[in-house]
Structure formats: structure tokens, C-alpha cells
């Protein structure tokens, strides 16, 4: 016998699968490390959360639900940290975005490393911008 909630959890699993497939297509097609990092760090994490929680509630065992919620909450805590570390390492090693600041497209396979070290962008209104 399957109740109404089981259909809801199957739908949750489909939701997570959709997010994972979208993130994989993003990793396959995007031309740039920063956009690829954007695709995986949000899409795969959210899809993982939806799919694993759906599986655990569909099985219905309380220990499984506790383990799944623990893994998902830990992943939600640590995925932004990992993405931040990778992005900061890329910026400091001089990995270039696919468009340079003038807006022209670069070759994503050839010039991925800039010759001089890149500086962080100055955000308008930040503390570094206000000091003359």
C-alpha cells in the first residue's frame, strides 16, 4: 500500500534528479571555471539533498532519516566553504574568466592563465572603494 506521501517523495526524487542533470549539463557545456563552479556547487548540492531525503523518507526507517538529514545538513554547511576555497585558489592562481574586462571572448582552451596575477574586482560601495 502506498500512501499519498509516497507519491510526494517520488516527486521529490524526480526534482533532485532534474537538478543533478542540469548541473551536469552545465559542467559539460560552460566554458569557464567560475561558471562551472557555479553550476556544480549549487545544482549538485541541492539535487543531492532532495534525492537523498526523498529516498530516506520513502524507506521510512528512522535511523536512515536521521543519517540522511545529518548528511544533508553537513553538505549544506560545507559546500559553500569548498566552493569559496576553489574560487579563491583560481583567482590567486590567475585563472581567467572567458570574457576579459573589456567584454571580448577569449579562447577557453588556450589562454586560461593570465600573464600577471589578477586582482580581486573592486565592488562599488565596498570599504576599499570608499577610501580615496
Amino acid at each position: 500500500m502506498s500512501s499519498f506521501f509516497d507519491y510526494f517523495f517520488i516527486a521529490l526524487m524526480f526534482f533532485g534528479l532534474f537538478f543533478i542533470a542540469t548541473a551536469a549539463v552545465g559542467v559539460y557545456r560552460f566554458k569557464d571555471l567560475y561558471t562551472r563552479l557555479h553550476a556544480t556547487s549549487k545544482g549538485v548540492t541541492f539535487g543531492f539533498a532532495a534525492l537523498v531525503v526523498g529516498v530516506a523518507f520513502l524507506l521510512g526507517d528512522q535511523g536512515d532519516i536521521a543519517k540522511a538529514l545529518l548528511a544533508v545538513s553537513f553538505q549544506f554547511l560545507t559546500a559553500p566553504v569548498a566552493a569559496h576555497m576553489i574560487g579563491r585558489a583560481a583567482l590567486r592562481k590567475g585563472v581567467r574568466p572567458v570574457r576579459n574586462p573589456e567584454g571580448e571572448l577569449l579562447d577557453p582552451d588556450k589562454d586560461i592563465i593570465s600573464p600577471e596575477p589578477m586582482r580581486p574586482l573592486r565592488v562599488r560601495g565596498s570599504a576599499a572603494d570608499r577610501t580615496p
Binding site: M13, G16, I20, A23, A24, V27, L33, R36, L37, T40, S41, V44, T45, G47, F48, L51, V52, V55, A56, L59, A68, A71, Q75, A79, A82, I86, A89, A90, K93, V95, P108, D109, I112, I113
Partner: peptide, 25 residues
């Protein structure tokens, strides 16, 4: 093209393998 691309993929592959394990269960 860069090592950091591969590190991004390691992170994502671990999560996809986890999802396959949950579906297998």
C-alpha cells in the same frame, strides 16, 4: 584545462555517487 576544473569535478562526482548509492538502496 586547469587542475581546479578537475577538483570541481571530484566534488561533484562524490555527490553523484552518493545519489546512485541512495537509489540503489
Amino acid at each position: 584545462p586547469h587542475v581546479l576544473d578537475r577538483i570541481v569535478c571530484i566534488d561533484a562526482i562524490a555527490l553523484i555517487v552518493i545519489c546512485m548509492m541512495a537509489t540503489w538502496e
